[in-house]
Amino acid sequence: MTSSPAPGAPPVLRAQALTKTYGDGQSRFDALKGVSLEVHRGESLAIVGKSGSGKSTLMHLLALLDRPSTGVVEIDGEDAASAPTRRINRLRNERFGFVFQQFFLTAQQTVLENVTLPLLVAGVAPRERARRGLAVLESLGLADKARNRANDLSGGQKQRVVIARALVNEPDVIFADEPTGNLDSTTGEQVEDLLFGLQRERGITLVVVTHDDDLAARCDRRVTIADGLIVGGADR
């Protein structure tokens, strides 16, 4: 399934002149100084740049996890700032999937419980949660680990669990912050294959933050950030 955006359709995500300032007075720090970009449906975008350049900050703003100091984030052409919190929460719950830099797995819970967390938040019934959770784990080759404690998995398995968690609510957009950052190159490559496979097969929009050039090169497009500004965008 390929998904070329309908001509004239608004981009899934659009950022206009985003700034983000942390702290004030002496400790005031401008993490973003006016960033504008668009992400289209079904494309994969890499956000690259040096450490501390503001990549994660930008991703958090795009994912509506944080509010910009100035500037506008539009989702499907609609200004997010004017939407009520409830709607933003629902939007994140139903349409976004997250892969954070760390795994953020709850160690004592089972793999299945970790994976179905977005469904738990959404208020899906327990049976349905288990069914969908198992289906996702199956597709990632982790069905036999469903009842294991999350803590007992290897690093690569954990990363796949995290991706399963991002997929379980069948999102439109997946935000991945350094998805391969703490994996060895072989496992990292597997995880990349997984993500790009999903993007191709399901038409999912992929926003990947990375400083790995190889990963960035596999994306449709990349923007480079330095000191809170976009210094280069390249379409492949």
Binding site: L65, T85, R86, N89, R92, N93, F98, F104, L117
Partner: peptide, 16 residues
């Protein structure tokens, strides 16, 4: 703390 952050990122409301 992280678990709470994660659940909130996934759209859990403050009330919940």
């Amino acid at each position: 703390t992280r678990e709470i952050g994660l659940m909130k990122a996934m759209g859990m409301s403050n009330g919940r």
